[in-house]
């Protein structure tokens, strides 16, 4: 009798649980599909970041071995990643701690999935406002790639879920992984962006709606006014810096500029590899050549100074 009661209870439980499991499977199949479709767009960036950190006027040099993620954009080998990976620091943080960071990535390589082949690459542009950086693969070695098309997409909607795709680190087999975000607000000024919460935190990665459509790029943004709102030593966080989804139109504007620089980078790379010994006496380079250009003055790329703010100015 007792056994019969238990069996009946189990049957009820199974009946009750069956639709739930079924609904869950349907739901998770969306991220799974997106993961399958987009995993190949995610690449690893390996480089050494040379840092000169100046805190309160005290300078310290260090080098960090970095391995971070980026996303292929288009089919030319251009990779989108976070400017923070190259030493970018929010302006309010720099000001708060009187912090200056000069960061130079060297020996930059791109790796696909968990392959061992490395592809020479170059940081070609930073957009510290959007917290994005653009890296160009210099020699594709005949490899064909198909990246994300940032020019086609939809707007996020408040209250809806977004899916992000990335990869785990090399120590975890570069396994493709997904995360979810929930759109909590739409900010209109000074630029349009959507605030989000959730489990996906890979900055500069595209996010998709559950229909698999591109909905924007995850970034973090600083409010255009104000400073850290409370917290202090007891915590509370900096509410002025938030994860947001950038509208594609803003990202595409940066992308267009970055593409020009990427083309110049490829051109220069090709010239340099022609073995031009004749030009050795007069080494000339394109804009932003050399270490100086790849340095960031203050962690957010070559900060645009106001005219008259550069060293040596205002000589009498």
């Amino acid at each position: 009798m007792k056994m019969r009661y238990v069996a009946a209870l189990c049957a009820v439980a199974l009946l009750l649980s069956a639709p739930l499991v079924g609904a869950g499977e349907d739901e998770t199949s969306v991220p799974e599909k997106i993961l399958a479709a987009k995993a190949d767009t995610v690449v690893n960036l390996k480089f050494v970041l040379k840092l000169q950190i100046i805190v309160q006027g005290q300078s310290r040099d260090q080098e960090q071995n970095m391995e971070v993620r980026g996303v292929l954009i288009g089919d030319s080998g251009l990779v989108l990643t976070s400017n923070m990976n190259f030493g970018g620091i929010p302006e309010s943080v720099r000001r708060q701690y009187n912090l200056e960071v000069k960061a130079t990535p060297v020996e930059l390589k791109i790796l696909f999935g968990n392959e061992v082949e490395e592809y020479d690459a170059q940081l070609v542009a930073r957009d510290s406002n959007l917290n994005l950086a653009f890296v160009q693969i210099l020699d594709m070695k005949g490899r064909k790639v198909k990246g994300v098309d940032l020019r086609t997409g939809v707007e996020p909607r408040i209250g809806r879920e977004l899916i992000g795709v990335t990869r785990m680190s090399r120590g975890f087999d570069c396994a493709p992984s997904v995360g979810r975000l929930f759109v909590t607000a739409k900010v209109e000024k000074p630029r349009v962006m959507w605030a989000v919460n959730g489990s996906f935190s890979e900055i500069a990665h595209p996010v998709y709606n559950i229909a698999g459509e591109l909905a924007g790029i995850l970034s973090i943004q600083e409010g255009s006014e104000g400073v850290s709102q409370g917290g202090g030593m007891m915590g509370g966080g900096n509410n002025n810096i938030r994860p947001v989804i950038l509208p594609l139109s803003d990202v595409v504007r940066s992308l267009k500029q970055a593409e020009k620089r990427a083309a110049e980078a490829l051109e220069t790379y090709a010239e340099d590899n022609e073995g031009d010994e004749a030009g050795d006496e007069a080494g000339e380079s394109s804009p932003g050549d050399g270490e100086k250009a790849s340095e960031t003055k203050d962690g957010e790329g070559e900060q645009k100074p106001e005219p008259g703010d550069e060293p040596g100015d205002d000589e009498e």
Partner: peptide, 28 residues
Amino acid sequence: TSAEVKTGADKLLEYKIRGVTFSDRAGK
């Protein structure tokens, strides 16, 4: 900025140069 203009070097006489920027003109 100064980091974004073209640069050059005379390796024989050992010095480097860059182009003139708006900031140079305005600042000076």
